[in-house]
Design a protein around this nucleic acid. Structure first.
Length: 505
RNA sequence: UCCUCGAUAGCUCAGCUGGUUAGAGCACAUGACUGUUAAUCAUGGGGUCCCUGGUUCGAGCCCAGGUCGGGGAGCCA
C-alpha cells in the first residue's frame, strides 16, 4: 500500500492506494474521481476500456465518501489537485456510502457543525488540522530545544485560580471542584522544581460567549521560567511566536495554499515585533496618536469606506448576472452557474453588512475608551488593524490584571504584564508577565480580590522557600491556529469544538 | 445577561402590498455524452413554511410570546 503523500517517489510506477471517493464526475466510458486517503488528495481516472464493465459500473454508481482500493499508474499532472493522477487499472469497493450530507456546495455553519464528524474530511478542514498539528509539534520543538520540561497542571482544581471567569463546577467525591481555567499557579510551583517548564493541556471557561474568538474548552500552552524578568519574558514570547509561524510558513505551503491564506502579514513575524506600553496603546486606540500616518478613527473610517465600496461592487456583479440570466441567451448550465454565483455573492454581502454594523460600535468604543480600563475585543481589533505585525502591549494598570502580577517599581500602579496581539484583527493570542514575589503584597492582593486565603497557602509557600524572580505566559492554541490559517471563526481550529450551546457531535 | 439579524425541500436560498395548487438551483434517481475540475442535455420523486396563540373572509407574509441559530457587547486565550 502506498500513501498519496509519497506519490512523487512512485512517478510512472503502479501503486495501490486505499481511501475514499471525495468527489466524482462521469461521462461515457470515463469516471473522474477526487480520491483521498488521509495523507492527501489526487485524481483517479477510471476508464471503461481498462477496468472492464463490472468495475466501471461499480465506480460510476459509487456515492461520495465510499471507501475503495485502487491500483494504477502514477502520472504527474500539475493541473490536478495534489499534482498527480492515477490511471486506475484495478478497483475494489470496500463499502458503498449512503447519501452523503456534505455536497460540493455552500453550506451553512450550523449544518456543518452538526456534521462536524464528517466535515473534518473536507479538504479545507483537513488542511487546518494539518497546520494545527504542525503548530503543536513546533511548540514542543521550540521548548524542548531550549531545555524546557513539559509538566502538566491538574484539570480538577479546588479553587477558582484568578477568581474572575465563570468556571465549570463538578462533583469531586462529594466536594465541589472546578475544571481548570489556567495552569498558571501550578506552573510557578513546577518552575521552582525544574527551572524551565511548560504545560500543554485543556482549559475550561464557562462563559456564555458567542463570538468568533471564544470556546468553552480550548488548549493552552503555559511556560514558566525561574529567574526571568518581564524583558526576558517578552524576548521569549517573540522568539517563540516567530519560530512557530516560520515553521508553518516554510513547511506547510500546500496547506496554506489550500486555505487560500494570504501570507503577507504572516511573513512580518520575521521582523521585530512592536512593543509599546499600555498608556501609548491607549493613545493609539483613542485616536490621539497616529500610526503609519493614520489615527484609529481614520483607519476605521477608511475600513468602512472600503467595505461599502466592496458591497457596491458585489451589488453590480449580482445585477449584471441577473441581467444576463433574464436575457435568455444563456445555456441552462450557464444559468445555473450564474445563479450559484449570485447566491454566494449575496452571502458575501450579508457578511459585509455584519462587519459594517460593527464599525460604528467600534468607533464609539475607541473614542470613549477610558484610560485605566482593560481592552475590549473591539479595542484589540482596532489596535491590531493599525499595525501590520504583532504588537506587544506591556505595563498594564494593576487593577485590570490578575493578583499575581508584579508591580513595576519604576512605574507605580502598573503591573509587569504583557499581551501579544496578533495582526489582522485576531487579537490577544498570548498573555503573560512577571510574577509578584513579595509575599505580603500577594496576601493583600488575594484579600482585595476576595479570594479564599486557605486555597493559596501552597502558592504562598513558593515565596517562603527560595523566592526568585520568575515570569511566564499563556498561549491560546486555537487563537494561534485561527490567525495562522486566516480563519473567520475559532470553531474551525479544533476537531470537535465545545462552545456555548454546542456539545455534539 | 444585553443589543442586533435570522429560521421556507436533504443543502443553499427566492417568495411582491396578506389572495387560488409554495418556487429555483444543488444533491438524489433514470437515461444520453471519451478528459472532467461547482458551467452538457432530458425526465422524475421530494414541503408540519421553527412552535404556540392572536388579527383577518383569507397568514409562509401582520401582531404577541417562546425555542433554536448567526454577529457583536461583557469576560477572556
Amino acid at each position: 500500500m502506498t500513501y498519496i503523500k509519497d506519490l512523487l517517489k512512485h512517478k510512472g510506477q503502479t501503486v495501490e492506494l486505499k481511501g475514499w471517493c471525495a468527489q466524482k464526475r462521469d461521462s461515457k466510458g470515463l469516471v473522474f474521481m477526487t480520491f483521498r486517503d488521509g495523507t492527501g488528495f489526487c485524481q483517479a481516472v477510471i476508464s471503461l476500456d481498462v477496468v472492464g464493465e463490472a468495475s466501471f459500473d461499480a465506480a460510476k454508481r459509487l456515492p461520495q465518501e465510499s471507501s475503495l482500493v485502487i491500483a494504477g499508474k502514477v502520472i504527474r499532472d500539475e493541473k490536478q489537485i495534489g499534482g498527480f493522477e492515477i490511471q486506475v487499472a484495478q478497483l475494489q469497493v470496500l463499502a458503498e456510502a449512503g447519501d452523503y450530507p456534505i455536497t460540493p456546495k455552500e453550506h451553512g455553519v450550523d449544518f456543518l457543525m452538526d456534521n462536524r464528524h464528517l466535515w473534518l474530511r473536507s479538504r479545507r478542514q483537513w488542511a487546518i488540522m494539518r497546520v494545527r498539528n504542525r503548530i503543536i509539534f513546533a511548540i514542543h520543538e521550540f521548548f524542548q530545544g531550549k531545555g524546557f520540561v513539559q509538566m502538566d497542571a491538574p484539570i480538577f482544581t479546588g479553587n477558582a485560580c484568578e477568581g474572575t471567569s465563570t468556571l465549570f463546577e463538578t462533583d469531586y467525591y462529594g466536594e465541589p471542584a472546578y475544571l481548570s481555567q489556567s495552569g498558571q499557579l501550578y506552573g510557578e510551583a513546577m518552575a521552582m522544581a525544574q527551572g524551565l517548564i511548560y504545560t500543554f493541556g485543556p482549559t475550561f471557561r464557562a462563559e456564555k460567549s458567542k463570538t468568533r474568538r471564544h470556546l468553552s474548552e480550548f488548549w493552552m500552552i503555559e511556560p514558566e521560567m525561574a529567574f526571568y524578568d518581564l524583558k526576558m519574558d517578552m524576548d521569549l514570547i517573540e522568539d517563540f511566536v516567530r519560530f512557530v509561524v516560520s515553521k508553518v510558513l516554510d513547511e506547510m505551503k500546500e496547506e496554506l495554499k489550500a486555505l487560500e491564506r494570504d501570507t503577507t502579514y504572516l511573513e512580518k513575524v520575521r521582523e521585530p515585533f512592536i512593543r509599546m506600553k499600555y498608556e501609548d496603546a491607549v493613545s493609539v486606540i483613542k485616536g490621539e496618536k497616529e500610526v503609519n500616518g493614520k489615527t484609529s478613527l481614520q483607519m476605521l473610517a477608511h475600513e468602512e469606506a472600503a467595505l461599502k465600496n466592496q458591497r457596491a461592487q458585489l451589488e453590480t456583479d449580482i445585477a449584471e448576472r441577473e441581467k444576463k440570466i433574464a436575457s435568455g441567451e444563456l445555456k441552462k448550465g450557464e444559468v445555473n452557474f450564474n445563479q450559484a454565483r449570485i447566491d454566494k455573492l449575496k452571502n458575501e454581502i450579508k457578511d459585509l453588512d455584519e462587519k459594517l454594523q460593527n464599525i460604528p460600535q467600534w468607533q464609539n468604543s475607541a473614542r470613549n475608551f477610558k484610560r485605566g480600563d482593560d481592552f475590549g475585543g473591539s479595542d484589540e481589533t482596532v489596535l491590531t488593524k493599525m499595525f501590520g505585525q504583532p504588537v506587544m502591549v506591556y505595563n498594564w494598570p494593576q487593577e485590570v490584571k490578575a493578583f499575581y502580577m508584579k508591580e513595576d517599581e519604576t512605574d507605580k500602579g502598573y503591573a509587569k504584564g504583557v499581551d501579544l496581539l496578533a495582526p489582522e484583527g485576531y487579537g490577544e493570542v498570548v498573555g503573560g508577565g512577571e510574577r509578584e514575589t513579595d509575599i505580603e503584597r500577594l496576601k493583600n492582593k488575594i484579600e482585595e480580590h476576595q479570594l479564599p486565603m486557605s486555597a493559596f497557602e501552597w502558592y504562598l509557600d513558593l515565596r517562603k522557600f527560595g523566592n526568585v524572580p520568575h515570569s511566564g505566559f499563556g498561549l491560546g492554541l486555537e487563537r494561534l491556529v485561527a490567525w495562522i490559517c486566516g480563519l473567520q471563526h475559532i470553531r474551525e481550529t479544533i476537531p470537535f469544538p465545545r462552545s456555548y450551546g454546542r456539545l455534539l457531535p
